[in-house]
Computed example of a mutant assay.
Amino acid sequence: MRDLSTGGGTGPLSIEHSGEGGKKEGRQEAILRLVAQNFYVAIEEIASLFGVTTQTARRDIMALEEAGKIRRLHGGAVLTTPLETSVYRQRRVENAAQKERLAQVVGDLVPEGANLFIDSGTTCEAIAHALLRHRHLRLVTYSLRVATILSENSNFTLAVPGGFVRPVHGGIFQEDTADFMKRFKFDFALISVSGIDRDGDICDDDHAEGVIAAAAMAQAERTILAVDSSKFGKRAMVRLGTIADIDILVTDAYPEGEILRLLKDNDVEIIC
């Protein structure tokens, strides 16, 4: 079971407020932070964590949705707003060692001179660092952070779309960014996602990012998905694709249950 830790992971959230209204307000604040940290949280999990009925948990979710802070989805809730800076910074340090190991594996899989698409996010930033040991690559990304890392190697050919830069994660977007990706052909699309749910869907938090990554995957000969094992069984708001769209899964621990079965059924290579 998850613990209700703060953004820094230093201890349990305090939800003690005077009066019933204060308790409800504190519980809803804690639920919102839990969703922000874990991408998706189920009503049954809220009920168990806070010692309330599922009806109370559902009312909390409805109140937060009415406030425009979350969205109800499949018996739980997901974020509706971009990540706060503090949450994104926390993700950069969470599981940092695992992300570094995954990045090194992905770097080994990429041959010299390859044409690559690289997704945004903290795992892909680690992958960008790992690719710097190559001499010649041709790369496309919509992440300003990834592009900044890759630009350290002057022998790389690097393309980014034009548009507005989103705060916090540095994604570059405009209306035709997905069409920009369709102008290229890639040997590999290197992506990371917020979760792989038990239905076999790969999911992310942001619709615009999902559209761009899906467009790039359609232009790629092979797709490499790099995620740490904490993403197994998690569901986010946007369906990017399915396990069938992945050729190689790079992770830190072997998946289990239905996810493993779906990976095997679709002949996805698993590298741990």
Rank of each mutant, 00 (worst) to 15 (best):
G68Y: 00
G68I: 01
K69V: 11
I70K: 00
R71Q: 14
R71H: 05
R72S: 15
L73T: 04
L73Y: 11
L73H: 08
H74N: 15
G76R: 04
V78Q: 04
V78Y: 02
L79S: 14
T80M: 13
T81W: 09
L83S: 11
E84P: 08
E84L: 14
S86H: 13
Y88C: 05
Y88F: 14
R89S: 14
R89A: 13
Q90F: 02
R91G: 04
R91A: 12
R92P: 00
E94W: 03
N95E: 03
N95T: 00
N95Q: 00
A97I: 09
Q98T: 08
K99D: 00
K99G: 00
A103H: 01
V106S: 05
V106K: 02
G107K: 03
L109Q: 11
E112V: 09
E112C: 08
E112Q: 11
N115R: 15
L116Y: 05
L116D: 05
L116A: 03
F117D: 02
I118T: 09
D119H: 06
D119W: 03
S120T: 14
S120A: 15
T122F: 01
T122S: 08
T123W: 03
T123R: 03
T123G: 01
C124S: 15
E125K: 00
A126K: 13
I127A: 01
I127N: 05
A128I: 12
L131Q: 08
L132F: 10
L132S: 06
R133Y: 11
H134C: 04
H134T: 07
H134W: 07
H134Q: 04
R135I: 13
R135T: 15
R138H: 13
R138D: 07
L139I: 15
V140T: 07
V140F: 09
T141Q: 08
Y142E: 10
Y142R: 06
Y142A: 12
S143G: 05
